[in-house]
Structures are given as C-alpha cells and as structure tokens.
Design a protein around this nucleic acid. Sequence first.
DNA 1: TATAAAAGTTAGATTAATCTAACAAATATT
DNA 2: AATATTTGTTAGATTAATCTAACTTTTATA
Lengths: 222, 222
Amino acid sequence: MLSYTEENYLKALLKLSFQNEEKPEAGTNEMAAYLGVKPATATDMLKKLKEKDLVTYKKYGKILLTDTGKKNGIAILRKHRLWETFLYEKLDFSWDEVHEVAEQLEHIQSAKLVDKLEEFLDFPEFDPHGDPIPKANGEMPVIAKTLLAELKAGDTCSVAAVKDTSTLFLQYLEKLQITIGTKIKIIEVIDFDGSLYVGIAGGEPRSVSMKFAESLFVQKLL
Amino acid sequence: MLSYTEENYLKALLKLSFQNEEKPEAGTNEMAAYLGVKPATATDMLKKLKEKDLVTYKKYGKILLTDTGKKNGIAILRKHRLWETFLYEKLDFSWDEVHEVAEQLEHIQSAKLVDKLEEFLDFPEFDPHGDPIPKANGEMPVIAKTLLAELKAGDTCSVAAVKDTSTLFLQYLEKLQITIGTKIKIIEVIDFDGSLYVGIAGGEPRSVSMKFAESLFVQKLL
DNA sequence: TATAAAAGTTAGATTAATCTAACAAATATT
DNA sequence: AATATTTGTTAGATTAATCTAACTTTTATA
Ligand SMILES: [Mn+2]
Ligand SMILES: [Mn+2]
Ligand SMILES: [Mn+2]
Ligand SMILES: [Mn+2]
C-alpha cells in the first residue's frame, strides 16, 4: 500500500517525464520544486521509493520510474482525470475548479470505484482540459501536440488541450468562449511580438498574445 | 482545518452519542475501542480536541462534543451518507460495499462538492442503509426507531433501516430480498426463542431469529 | 470500608513527513 | 585547470499519530 505522499511523488515523476520530452528522468530539486517541498525532503522520499522498487535512483543521479512505479503513477493519473471529468460533466464544476478537488479524490483506494466511475462516465477518452485518460490496463493515447503558436496565417484548427492549466488562463479562455473543440482560424501572425490575429468560431476576430498561443494545444484542420 | 484523524474522532463521538440514547457522552476506552486505537492514543487526541474547543473533556471525565464539534461531526456524517448514496444509486455498489469507500470519501474537503453531489442525487433523505442524511444546515430528521422484534403477531411493517450494518447481515438481507421499504408481516411470534415467523412481500413465509429481528428497524403500518 | 477490577493517564519510544543549516559533489564559467 | 555556481545529501530537529508499560483514579464488590 502506498501512502498519499508516496503516490504524489510517483505522479509528479510521471508528469515530469511527460514534460521533459524524450528524457523521462528528473532531478531532486526539480521534484522538490514540483511538489512544493525542500530538496532534503525529496531526497529522503526518493530513497524510500527506491527501497520499494518504485524508482531507480542513486546518489547525485537522475531519477527514473521503474515499471511498477510507472504503473502506479498512471493509475493515479487515471483516477485524477476520471474524477475531473466527473466533476465537470456531472456536478457542473468549471474547468478551473476540478483540479484541486481531484488532487484529493485521486487518492481514494478502491479498484471497483475507478472502474465503475469510468463506466458511469461512458468511458471518456479525455479530461476537461483535453488530456488523455489512461485506460484500466494503463494504456494512454499519446496525441501529437501542436501549439497554436506553431500555426501560420490561413491555418484552421480545433482546440485539443490546454498546456497551461492555471486558473487565470482557464478563466480567460472561458471569457473568450474557447473550450475543447472550439475552432480557431489564424488570420494573421504579427512578427513583431509573435501575437496572432484570430477568428474564434462564433465570435468577433481578435488578437491573442504569443504567451496565449504557446499555452494552447490544437489539432490542425485540413 | 481538521486532520483526517481528528475528523474520525468527531464522527465517532457523534455516532456514540446516538448509540447511548439520552446520554450523548462517551468514555476514553469506549472511543478507543470504537476507533480501533489504544486508550492512551485516545487520551492524547481528546486533549488536542479540547484545545481546539471541539469537545469538553477533563481528566477521568466523560467526553461531550461542543457545538462546533457537533457541527463538524455532522458535516462528516453528511458527506459519508451522501457518498454512500452516490455509490449505491449511481455506481451500482451493493449496500454492503458502500461503507468502506465512503469512509475515505467523507474526508474530501470541498463545500461545493458536497452540495453539488446532494443536488445531483436529488436531495436524498436517507442513505442506502436507511439512515437519515443531514442537510447542509446540519438538520437531521430524527426518526422514531422501532425494532422488528418489538412487533406482535398480526402486525405489518415496512423496513426502515438496518441497525446492524455488518456485511454478513446485509448480504443475508439481500439473499432474503429484503431492502429498505420491503413490507413484512408478522405471522407468529415464537415465545420459546424470540424468533418470528414472517411473510416477506413477494416471498414464501419463513422464520427469522431474534437476533435478526433485533437488527432491523421498521415502521409499523396501520 | 477495604480491596479488587475497570477506566483512564503519563512517560517514553517509534514512524512518516517535513524542515533548516551545514556540507559535498557535479557542472559551468572564466 | 581553477573557481564559482548549481545541485544534491546529511545531520539533527519538529510535529502528528501511534504504541507499550507503568502508574493513578474511579467504580464495583466482597
Ligand atoms: Mn488536474
Ligand atoms: Mn486535467
Ligand atoms: Mn457507513
Ligand atoms: Mn450508511
């Protein structure tokens, strides 16, 4: 049985492994920063996780999830995203509110609960932020991720996921009536500052910053 | 903010206060036994709860919830029973499976979650075991509780709640196709051992033990 | 009422998770 | 290569929740 805290370390390592593309390893300070603890604390926990064969770790070295560690991490991510979907779809939470509560719900231990919840939600593929929900067997679709910022004038796309999940960004998106699936057309790319002039389905054309364009994953449409 | 453990002590004290009819106080050993800890552990925690003004307690004395303590305890009971109802109604858990998971879910912190959950469940009044669900304001209907064992030959009743919530009893009830609301008619009372010969709506007449009859709360029908 | 039993407390130890402060190793920069 | 910076570790302390073993108070019983 893993403690609440151990689970958080595994999930953090998994998330970091997605972030550092192609390099699924992390450092002590990186982990500590991500989890909001001091490096000394992370060092201790990493030793413990190594004892339990959940990570590979040696002094001053990089940290990597073992197969068991990864399996456990994915199970927690699966619960997190299923609960986010539940809160969003069934309880009318907005997409900037779901994460905090899911951080707690993801630690509930009950295999039956997860699977029944998934069934109740009709086997959703993505969570409210557009992130893929791992299946019971651990499979998780890896979607090619294109940033809005990578598109050119004339391109059209559909919003696939948010890269930045901060409340500020999510609420701004809501204000612009942008949600997962919203169609966006790039009217013009402003070279001066990397901002974009875009048409958002059903709204007036408007300008969005480069920071904005780098925070949104889209699927390019033909 | 209360810890998971503190919450459990408050809920335990509340439950004990319902059990000891008319005497809403509990003793240290009683609390410890109920929570599955040693008396020494309970003593320490009670001192802590007293510091936080959640219980009234003095050395070698009985323990009583303060108003704040009671309010908190009821809030946890409310969550517990709402989650049990969710698991039973929406996720097809059987009534002997819901408790264990609700023990975990009751500690999730989010006022919005509880209230939305209640709304989603259409403001249920009773949980799957027939126990009343406290309202958001702390109100909880106090239902007159009659045991099946108190009835006489010729009486008819409707099952209101289970007194014993053990898996063994709940599964036995399921086997007999008895659930909340099931009508039962007392055909004969066997004085020798207190057992009852009863007719269960839609089934063959059968005999049930005194222990059985003392584990089921019913509402007498006219 | 004296004594035995039950109920409750205290002291001291343990484990998990955290911290700060001091130190050590690895990496980057002149 | 020497030095400075970054990264990571160790030692020692703290807090919450628990335990055991010894002790004290209260209650029951002879
Ligand atoms: Mn999230
Ligand atoms: Mn998400
Ligand atoms: Mn229960
Ligand atoms: Mn119940």
